[in-house]
Every structure is written in C-alpha cells, then in structure tokens.
Design a protein around this nucleic acid. Structure first.
Lengths: 169, 169
DNA sequence: GCCTGACTACTCGGATACCTATTGTCCGAGTCGAACAGG
DNA sequence: CCTGTTCGACTCGGACAATAGGTATCCGAGTAGTCAGGC
C-alpha cells in the first residue's frame, strides 16, 4: 500500500499557498523551486488540485495559483483524493464467485465480509484525514517554527508572490 | 493508493484454511484452484503468510499449509501486513528541509505535521483491520451463506484436505 | 520376514521475467500586457 | 494625447517517455513415502 509522492508535494504546496497574502498568487515554477522538486511534475499535482476545485489558476502573463476556498474548508483528504484518486485501496474482485465452490451472483446480496472490513478501515482513514484542515496545519506550523524561519518565509513569499489577474479557472 | 491484489487472495485463503478439520492441510495448488487464481502467485502469498507466522507449512509429499494459530488470534491486519508490508503508506521525504527556506535538520525536532496527520490516519486504518479476526469472518460467512453452499464447501474440503505430516516450518 | 538404504515423486521456497501504474518530461493552447500605429 | 489593434512573452494544460513496484512464472531445495536388496 503506497500513497503517491505527489500527495506530499501537493499538501506542502497548498500549505504554502495558504500563507500568501490575499490577492497574490504563485506560479508552479516558484512552488517547485521553494520545495526543490521538478517543476513539471509539481505542475501536474497543481493541475489536480485545480481540477478538484481546491486551487484556482490564472493563465497567461502574471498567472499562477492560489487557493479557491478558505483554508478551513480544505482538508487533507480533499488533497489526497484530488491527487491520488478517490478509488478504494482494496479492490474486491469477488473471487468468492470463482472456482468449484463459487457462489452464484444471486447469492451475493451481502457484500464480501473481507471487502466490507477493508471498506470500513478505509472509511476510518478518510475520516481521520478529513478532520485535518489546511488551517489546522498552518496553525501548528506557526506554533512549532522558529521566529526567524517564519520571517524568512514571509520575505520569500513577498518577493515571489505576484498579484495575479482576477480571471481564473 | 492501492492494496496488492495478493492481500485479497491471502485473506480468502486464510479463511478457507480456517475451515478445514484439525490436522488436515491444503496444498498451494488446491487453494489456488479453489479460488481460480494462478497457482504460482498464490503460492507466493502463502509464503508470505508462512514467514509472518500465520500459516505453517509442511514440505515434501503430503505437504501443504495450515493455520499456525487459532483463528481468533489472526487479524486482517496481520494478513495485510504479511503480504503488503508494514511500511507506512505515506512516505515523508522531509521536503520542508529543501529549497531556499528549508529548515535546518536541527530545527526539525517536531515531526512534519502533514506526515503526522497521515500517520494518525494510517493508525486508524490499522486499528480497524486489527479489530477483525479470521474467526469473526468465519462466523459472518456461515451466517450469510446458503446451507447447500456450506455443504458443498465441506465436501470439497473433505475431498481435498489431506492429513499432513507433523513436521512444519 | 524384517531391517536398511537409496530412489522417486511430490511440495515448498526463492530467484527470475513481464506488465501496469507511478514518476518525470515535453510541447502546444490560451491569456495577458505592452508596444505601435492611427485618429 | 488617446484609443484600438497587433504582436510577443509568459503560464497553464494535457499528451508523451522512463522507471519502479506489483504481477506472474519457473526451476531448484527439501521431505516423505516406496521399493529393492541384504541379513
């Protein structure tokens, strides 16, 4: 079981977007440079956030990304689902219907107990991630960080973040 | 995020092993045939169960597999971990230490909040699976199945299950 | 007739190919801003 | 000097390769039963 590396990047990127002043945006290249990851691949994750309605984009000159919603309405699960997909991790192939003692499909009204157990576990996983919003993360980061580091980040954001045009996708 | 297909096979195989009479065993080929899956790959999953101490094996003529522990001491998480690995699904690469505003390692005493959130979610996932034992599954299956189907399974087991030698790995 | 030994058949175990999904990259589509020409 | 148009540069978006991990397979290691030979 493995979660795409892009989820980590997208989560950190979203957290950074949350930190920039209102009306400002960051382009994909800047977000990638901040985290020192390949720009093109980071752009791919940002696209996913955009499609999911988590980030807004502006194209053209002075384009870039910014959050589409207040940080407290964006959960870690939203980001994970956007990048990694919403599909279940455990894919029941109904092998109980196979083989010499296979069940007939009409006898399978009850879901496979194994699949049901995994579905329940995945629900617990989702619930746990849904309980964490970007706003929570930002609060923790601010509380845990050294003051001079926060200052450095603010300076960097003010230098990189550009006002972007109002039109957005 | 995706769980290996082998987990499903291993779980069903373990459930079947739980159903056979004491002192009897099933060979990998029979377990594969019962579920209509490739024998060699099923054998691979059974090996994993064996290494994890969930199943006992006997080699040579009249060899085969049987459970190594009572069914109520074997959880779905045990099986999942045996086949899919115990490693975390979310792999934090500490990108917060990268880039122009990267944190110094000595400032990273606190774990990354994003990684911590995922660790917590995965713990919830594990807990949910740990709460389900093979014995629970067997009980549900018996309760949900048609009587004639149970009879067919018993007949098949009695035909295929052979007494296996006591020596085991 | 009984014991001993080796042989054979059968099964598991790990090492080996293949194939899908993740990872990483590129070029075209679209947009904005500025420069320029005309009024 | 102001305005409309054109051009150019910049950024996102989706299509295109490379690679790692899951999927599938095969052959060797090891064991138990069997059979033959000797006592």
């Amino acid at each position: 079981m493995q979660i795409s590396k892009g989820v980590e990047w997208a989560a950190h990127a979203a957290a950074l977007l949350n930190g920039l002043p209102p009306g400002r945006g960051l382009k994909a290249e800047a977000l990638a440079r901040f985290h020192d990851v390949p720009a093109a691949y980071m752009a791919k994750q940002l696209q996913a956030l955009s499609k999911a309605g988590i980030a807004k984009t502006s194209r053209g000159a002075h384009g870039g990304y910014r959050l589409a919603k207040p940080a407290d309405e964006i959960t870690l699960w939203d980001i994970t689902a956007a990048v990694d997909g919403k599909g279940p991790a455990f894919r029941c192939t109904e092998i109980r219907q196979n083989g010499p003692c296979g069940l007939k499909p009409e006898d399978c009204k009850r879901p496979c107990q194994i699949a049901a157990a995994f579905a329940s576990a995945e629900q617990a996983f989702r619930d746990s991630l849904t309980a964490v919003s970007l706003a929570d993360l930002a609060g923790q980061v601010v509380k845990d960080s050294e003051p001079d580091h926060l200052l450095a980040m603010m300076n960097w954001l003010n230098a990189e973040a550009e006002p972007l045009s109002e039109k957005s996708a």
